[in-house]
């Protein structure tokens, strides 16, 4: 096992536990539970195996699902978002420009923030859509998506500033 995978595994366990034990209990304003486990999917290196990444996205979501009794909503959302990640990367960091090796190694703030916002937003949209699963609840879905995205983004930004940039 190479150091990158080992580090990823440690991060995985840590983030899942943090999500389940801390952030799922927050209930800000009664319903906002920021999802910081997306950090794991964001920090995962961009140049690694995409197939493995899809599996990891599924596994992350499923772990959260098992521990927070949400059926498959997290799994579906994080699976979709990890499948879509290359497209989001290409559209936010530019097609012609050299793709960064990981989220932290890039220095373009604007591109990074657009990537972050769209990644988290897509995930939350899918998550809330699956959670309510009805067109009648579209307002609830949008409300949940926007507010939770906001808080997730704040927390993810704080947490990314802790991690050291990888070279």
């Amino acid at each position: 096992m190479n150091p990158i995978n080992l580090k990823s595994l440690a991060l995985f366990v840590l983030i899942v536990l943090a999500q389940v034990l801390i952030f799922n209990q927050m209930n800000l304003f009664g319903f906002i539970n920021p999802m910081i486990y997306l950090l794991f999917l964001i920090l995962y290196r961009f140049d690694q195996n995409q197939t493995l990444f899809i599996f990891m996205g599924f596994l992350t979501g499923y772990m959260i699902d098992i521990m927070s009794q949400t059926g498959g909503a997290h799994a579906i959302a994080s699976l979709s978002v990890s499948y879509l990640r290359p497209f989001i990367i290409r559209n936010t960091f530019g097609i012609t420009a050299e793709l960064p090796k990981s989220f932290n190694s890039d220095l373009r703030t604007l591109n990074k923030s657009i990537f972050l916002v769209s990644f988290v937003f897509v995930h939350h949209l899918i998550y809330f859509f699956v959670l309510y699963f009805s067109w009648d609840a579209i307002l609830l879905i949008l409300k949940g998506t926007f507010l939770t995205t906001l808080f997730s983004l704040i927390l993810i930004l704080i947490l990314t500033s802790f991690s050291r940039p990888t070279k």
């Binding site: 995409q50 197939t51 899809i54 599996f55 599924f58 979501g61 499923y62 699902d65 009794q69 949400t70 059926g71 498959g72 909503a73 799994a75 579906i76 699976l79 979709s80 499948y83 699956v130 699963f133």
Partner: peptide
Amino acid sequence: NPIIYLFLMGISLFFLSSRSSFH
């Protein structure tokens, strides 16, 4: 990648439907 994505999506939908009768 798309094949694995669809496969895992099917599994998660299965989990979803087995957990919640609404879904």
